[in-house]
Design a protein around this nucleic acid. Structure first.
Length: 424
RNA sequence: GGAGAGGUAGCGAAGCUGGCCGUAACGCGCUCGACUCGAAAUCGAGUUAUCGGUUAACCCCGAUACGUGGGUUCGAAUCCCACCCUCUCCGCCA
């Protein structure tokens, strides 16, 4: 959520931010709603002040043993009037709130201005895409061919955009989870968490998935619960309503969870393979940081995700998302894209964002500076990494001419030291 | 599923026969000060948030908040209803 005071005092900042994001939200509408809200609030508060004072007088009379009947009759009317106005004031407040909840975060000054993904800015490339001396396959062909991935049976069990991983593929996925979690918890300072995979409406609102993006979520019937689209949701909301100690910062959590996404609006995109599934496992990193330190923490998080790809020896590039391509709650986002030979391109495998105080406002997460008043923490989140897309990259980049698949060296300790998956 | 207890500041906890008890007793923590070479202990002072008005900002004034939402009343932490959550016991169960 955006700072209410900021919009009131310098609406031009928000106007520019919204223009940069190519948002259609109208700030003038806010100003009208907020003016109404303030007018009604001032009015009803004045009446409440009168009512409170009169009630005290009634109490005084009763203590003195005098009759207060005449005052009480008058107050009854005032009370009715207040009730009426209070309703109107509450409705006006709700209108402002609703408007605010639909407003995206303000991009950081360092974010390149641009309309969509074509104007993202490359930061660097690491690794050299491999040259193949044989006709290579797409990752799902490799996976199906080696008996590890079964999209047909997943279609039977559920529907499209699901997969069954068996044998070596199931083990590879488990190896990736362990490799990622071990890296984050043993070589970095993340605390491992197993959160609920379904959360309530308040939690979804805290990180910004609701109220705007309900159609992207899977919702339970008869329960006001949602399947999480990313562990960012439960991990960030772990501290909803908390006031953290300054000494606790930076504070990091990591979790491997399934992620559930409806993929509404992506019909026809990435229909084959592991790239765009309704359910996938992802290791997520979440950090709570001091405002002065949060962009440094973002760099560290990006480095953490990048290092995983380096250990897996997968070529990637890192880009800065431009204003028009950034997510709703982010002030700055780096995407890491892994090389997929069959698509002859880099595809997103990690997205690391600094949401600054946007989510902290929504979820009410603060920290107490030494001797000072509590203030909003900054929240960050990043993928580190999803297993499905990583497997897609491994299947394509590590396929061999004879149809076998090499296991990346870093994963072998997690794979009973298997070096290669042979075709049967 | 059955029975009971409870949700009040950063934490613990009092108030709960409706009205100078919500800037909320008391304790802990935290901040500042005294004592001390320094520390501990001790003593003293301070320490809720949000919104509105006002302001350069602070102060100040007003309103709201006792799990959440309603109700009764001139007035609700306190009485009533519904819901959520936590704990204890019993039952059932992976």
């Amino acid at each position: 959520m955006i700072d209410l005071k900021l919009i009131q005092k310098s609406p031009d900042v928000l106007v520019k931010a919204l223009a940069d994001r190519h948002s259609k939200i109208d700030v003038a509408e806010f100003q009208q709603l907020d003016a109404t809200r303030r007018r009604l609030l001032a009015e009803v508060e004045t009446l409440k002040g009168q009512s409170n004072a009169a009630s005290k007088a009634v109490a005084q009379c009763k203590r003195n043993g005098e009759s207060a009947d005449h005052m009480m009759a008058e107050l009854s009317q005032l009370s009715a009037r207040i009730k009426e106005l209070d309703g109107a004031a509450e409705a006006a407040k709700q209108a402002v709130e609703t408007w605010l909840m639909a407003v995206p975060n303000i991009p950081d000054a360092s974010v390149p201005v641009g309309k969509d993904e074509t104007e993202n800015v490359e930061v660097h490339r690491v690794g050299t895409p491999r040259t193949f001396d044989f006709p290579f396959k797409e990752h799902h062909e490799v996976g199906i061919g080696l008996g590890g991935l079964d999209f047909d049976r997943a279609g039977k069990l559920t529907g499209s955009r699901f997969v069954v991983a068996k044998g070596w593929a199931a083990r590879l996925e488990r190896a990736l989870v362990n490799f990622y979690l071990d890296t984050h918890t043993l070589q970095e300072d993340y605390i491992e968490v197993n959160p609920p995979f379904m959360v309530n409406r308040t939690t979804m609102t805290g990180t910004g998935q609701l109220p705007k993006f309900e159609e992207d979520l899977f919702k339970l019937q008869n329960w006001d619960y949602f399947l999480i689209p990313t562990a960012e949701v439960p991990l960030t909301n772990l501290h909803a309503g908390d006031v953290l100690d300054e000494a606790q910062l930076p504070l990091g959590y990591t979790a491997a969870t399934p992620c559930f996404r409806s993929e509404a609006g992506s019909y026809g995109k990435d229909t084959k393979g592991l790239i765009r599934q309704h359910q996938f496992i992802k290791v997520e990193m979440v950090r709570f940081a001091h405002p002065d330190d949060s962009f440094h923490q973002l760099d560290l998080m990006v480095r953490s995700a990048e290092s995983l790809l380096e250990k897996l020896e997968l070529p990637y590039r890192t880009i800065t998302l431009c204003t028009g391509d950034m997510g709703f709650g982010s002030a700055k986002t780096f995407d890491i894209e892994v090389w997929l030979p069959a698509q002859n391109t880099y595809r997103e495998i990690s997205s690391c964002s600094n949401c600054i105080d946007f989510q902290a406002r929504r979820a009410n997460i603060k920290f107490r500076p030494k001797g000072g008043k509590p203030q909003w923490v900054h929240t960050l989140n990043g993928s580190g990494l999803p297993t499905g897309r990583t497997m897609a990259a491994i299947l394509e980049n590590y396929q061999q001419k004879d149809g076998s698949l090499l296991i990346p060296t870093a994963l072998r300790p997690y794979m009973n030291n298997i070096e290669v998956i042979e075709p049967k």
